[in-house]
Structures are given as C-alpha cells and as structure tokens.
C-alpha cells in the first residue's frame, strides 16, 4: 500500500457512514415522527414542531386502558405465524422437489407461480371469500390462514434459488449414504438455507400482519379482530385521535421489531459464527 493511500480508507469509511446514515434517516423518519407524536397531548398533535413538548404518556394510558392490545396482537400473531409457517412448509417442500427430486418440473411450476402472482388479489378476493364461507371457515383461524397460503408462490420463487445453491455434492453424498429424501431435506438442505428461510418467513409474517381487507371480511366478531382493523378504530366519523393512533401503532409494532431482531441475528449469523467479525 502506498503511503498516499493511507487517507483513502478513512475517507471511504466516512462515506460509508454518510450514505447509510442518510438512507437510514430517510427510511426511518416517518416512524420516528410517529413515535414522537405518540407523546403529544391533544393540543399539540397538530403543531408542526416534531418535538413532543410538554411530553405526555396519556396516549399510552388511554390505549392500554380501553384498547384490547393483547387480544389484537395475539390474534394477529396467530394469523401471521400460521400463514408464514404454512407458506414456508409449502415453499421448502416445493423448492426441494423442484431442485432435487423433479428438476424437469421446475420451469413449468415456476411459471405457474409467476402467473399466480400476476393475478390481481383484489380481483379474486370475492371468489376466495365465497369459497371460504362455503367451507364454513368464517370466524375461524382456518379461514384467516388457509386462503392466504395462495400467495406461497412468492416464497417458492424466493427460496428455490437458495435450494439450488446448495452444493449438489452434499445432496448426492447424503443419498449415497442411504438417506431418504426427507432426511436429506432435513439434515442437508434446511441448515444450508436457514438464513433465506428466516428472511422470507419474516417478510411473509409482516405482510400478513399488515393485511386489512381479508381479516375484515373473515373475522367480523370483535374478539377475532386483528391489529390493522383495531387501528382503524381510532379513525371515526368524529375525526381521528392521532396521538392515540400513533401510540397504538408503536405498541403493536413492537412485537414485529422483536421478531425481526431475533431473526436478523440468525440471517447474518452464518458469518458471525465463522468468527469473521472485525
């Protein structure tokens, strides 16, 4: 390395921070604003200053005393976890089949998945709803979860590439040792694609968490409601209670943040384990 190059790493490092800090600020700013607003009283909610002064916990007190946070988060957690788990099982099994067991099916099945994604969801929700009620699944976890497995196509497309990246030699070796396909899948493929499974799983989980129309149609009873429907209860004909809405939104985002923090460790885990942290 030339002595004149010694400054360059420092400049590069500063630039690195600048870009990432700028991007982070831009992306996280609305959330920061929501957080600050959740500490504003009703007289300050509309004030243009982002700082909550005087700060108050009234919004949180009001939300926690009259809004069924626990129930809503619980219902939504069951729905989202159910959909994420279901889609991952479907996608991992399919990915394994398309890469290892029946590779000749791959182009056709992946095309079928892509077409399925191109179907506008708003156009098929009525038939889906009628079918679900016909099955007697309205007001049930089954009705909330099973129809949302139709979007497994996305998980399949994302995961199949990762299954394909597993070295063929490892899979062959397992087969030579007499492992059944399911054993190969469990012991060889799954550990290799774990970061991708977690990444796709958390994205499906959150997408389902933010779903509005389907739970509205399927779970009309108050004790079946999900977070997004609960949040709509802060906006009535009589106006919106912005401070409380933001407090409720912060409270219901926390479970996702926790899930993400746990998952994200594991997503980048593979190189941390390799002891390569600087």
């Amino acid at each position: 390395m030339h002595p004149t190059d010694r400054l360059r790493p420092a400049v590069a490092h500063a630039l690195w921070h600048l870009v990432l800090a700028g991007a982070s600020l831009a992306m996280a700013f609305p959330m920061l604003w929501s957080l600050l607003t959740s500490f504003k009283g009703p007289q300050d909610v509309f004030s243009p200053s982002p700082l909550p002064w005087p700060a108050t916990l009234d919004n949180y007190a009001a939300v926690l005393s009259s809004w069924p946070v626990g129930m809503l988060v619980g219902n939504t957690f069951i729905m989202s976890a159910g959909v994420a788990a279901g889609q991952l099982v479907i996608a991992v099994l399919a990915g394994f089949a398309l890469v290892v067991l029946a590779p000749r099916m791959r182009p056709a099945v992946l095309s079928a998945c892509t077409i399925a994604l191109a179907v506008p969801p708003q156009a098929i929700i009525i038939p889906q709803f009628l079918l679900t009620t016909r099955l007697g699944w309205q007001n049930s976890e089954l009705g909330l979860i099973v129809p949302q497995l139709g979007t497994s196509a996305l998980a399949v497309l994302l995961l199949v590439e990762h299954v394909a990246a597993v070295p063929a030699a490892q899979i062959e070796a397992a087969a030579l040792q007499g492992a059944r396909p399911i054993e190969t899948l469990w012991h060889v493929v799954l550990p290799a694609i774990r970061p991708a499974i977690l990444a796709v799983g958390i994205l499906v989980f959150i997408t389902t968490w933010n779903e509005y129309l389907w739970p509205l149609l399927i779970a009309p009873r108050s004790h079946d409601a999900t977070v997004q429907i609960g949040l709509a209860q802060f906006q009535g004909e009589g106006g919106t209670d912005y401070g409380a809405l933001m407090a409720a939104s912060v409270l219901t985002s926390l479970p996702i943040v926790v899930v993400y923090i746990i998952a994200s460790r594991r997503i980048i885990d593979s190189f941390i384990k390799a002891g390569l942290r600087p």
Binding site: L25, F29, S34, T240
Partner: peptide
Amino acid sequence: VYRALLFVPVVVAPVAVATAWKFL
C-alpha cells in the same frame, strides 16, 4: 444499527405510515 433502521418502513402499520406522511 443501520440494518435495523433501514428495516423500519416494513414494520410500521400502513395507516400509521400514511398518517405520518400526511402530517409531514
């Protein structure tokens, strides 16, 4: 830290994102 911050837009409920942007 950056990775967590950059993930935030996914976490926030759509109605809260919309409200924040409307005010901003």
